[in-house]
Each structure stands twice: as structure tokens, then as C-alpha cells.
Simulated assay, not measured.
Amino acid sequence: MTKKHILDTNYRPRLCVFRSNKHIYAQIIDNTNNKTIISSSTIAINIKKNITSSNNCSAARIVGQDIAKKSKEIGIKEVVFDRQNRIYHGRIKALAEAAREEGIKF
């Protein structure tokens, strides 16, 4: 999807993923109000104590599972996946697959 298609989907929130060299961040954003609803990352205290390294696929899977569990708790079941022009590979793919396994549809 292009950036215009992602931002035009006002009926579904957007799962935005940012990957740096050391960490991975995921947030669910409401496009109509431009507000972050939920966020999760490898620097969060509850995730940091469960991982040994923050820049691998297993850490990304844990972040994906965490963001999916938080979103299901507040009733979000469908999102638009925004990978910010990153290739669907490696840590981005691991996070997305973990979120799908927890029941989030995109």
C-alpha cells in the first residue's frame, strides 16, 4: 500500500512499525484524531526484562505479541499495517507474523 492509501483508511487504526539499528517500536495510531492509542517497544520495561538482545527477530516477535494483546484488550481486531517503506523481511516480518498469530487482522 502506498502512503496515501494507508493514511486514507480512517475506519481502521494503523499499526505503525519503526525499526532502528538497536530497537523496534510498534504503535497503533488513530488516523482521525492523530493520536497514539497503544505502543510497545523493546525499550519498554516489561519487554526489556524478557529479552537478551533488542535487535533480533525474537525480540520483534515479543513486541508483536505484546501490541496484539494490548489491542485485543481494548477491542481493536483489524488494523492497517504501516511498515514505513521498509522491506517486509527480518524483524518487520517477525513482528507482523506474531501480531497475526495473536489474532490481529491486516
Score class of each variant (00 low, 15 high):
Asn33Met: 05
Lys69Thr: 14
Arg86Asp: 04
Ser53Met: 06
Arg61Gly: 10
Asp30Met: 11
Thr52Glu: 14
Gly75Thr: 00
Asn31Glu: 14
Asp30Glu: 11
Gly64Lys: 08
Asn50His: 07
Gly64Arg: 00
Ala59Lys: 00
Lys72Cys: 08
Phe81Arg: 13
Ala98Gly: 05
Gly90His: 12
Glu78Cys: 08
Gly103Pro: 00
His89Glu: 13
Asp30Val: 08
Ala99Gln: 01
Ile62Pro: 01
Ser71Val: 12
Val63Asn: 02
Ala44Ile: 03
Ser39Arg: 13
Phe106Arg: 05
Arg100Leu: 02
Asp30Ser: 12
Thr36Asp: 05
Ile43Tyr: 07
Ile47Thr: 12
Gly64Gln: 06
Asn34Lys: 14
Arg100Val: 00
Ala44Ser: 10
Asn55Val: 05
Asn34Arg: 07
Glu101Ser: 04
Lys48Met: 00
Ile37Lys: 03
Asn34Cys: 05
Arg91Asp: 01
Ile62Cys: 05
Lys69Ser: 11
Gln65Asn: 15
Asn55Cys: 10
Ser53Val: 09
Gln65Thr: 15
Phe106Gly: 10
Ala59Phe: 00
Ile45Pro: 01
Glu97Tyr: 04
Ser39Gly: 11
Ala96Gln: 03
Ile67Trp: 01
Gly90Leu: 02
Glu73Gln: 14
Phe81Met: 12
Val79Arg: 02
Ser40Arg: 02
Ile43Asn: 08
Gly90Arg: 11
Ile87His: 14
Gly103Lys: 08
Ile51Trp: 06
Ala98Asp: 06
Ala60Ser: 14
Thr52Gln: 11
Ala99Cys: 11
Asp66Pro: 08
Lys77Phe: 10
Tyr88Asn: 15
Ala94Asp: 04
Ala96Thr: 13
Thr42Ile: 03
Ala96Met: 14
Phe106Thr: 04
Ala59Trp: 02
Gly75Cys: 02
Tyr88Val: 13
Phe81Ile: 15
Ala60His: 06
Ser41Ala: 14
Glu101Met: 09
Asn56Gly: 02
Arg86Gly: 05
Gln84Phe: 06
Ser53Phe: 06
Gly75Lys: 05
Lys49Val: 09
Ser53Tyr: 04
Ile43Asp: 08
Ile87Phe: 09
Arg86Ala: 02
Lys72Ile: 15
Phe106Val: 09
Thr42Asn: 07
Arg100Gly: 01
Ser53Pro: 01
Asn56Lys: 14
Lys72His: 13
Gly64His: 00
Val79Ile: 15
Ala99Met: 11
Lys105Ala: 09
Asn46Met: 00
Phe106Ser: 10
Arg100Gln: 08
Ser40Ile: 04
Ala99His: 01
Gly90Thr: 12
Ile67Asn: 02
Gly103Met: 07
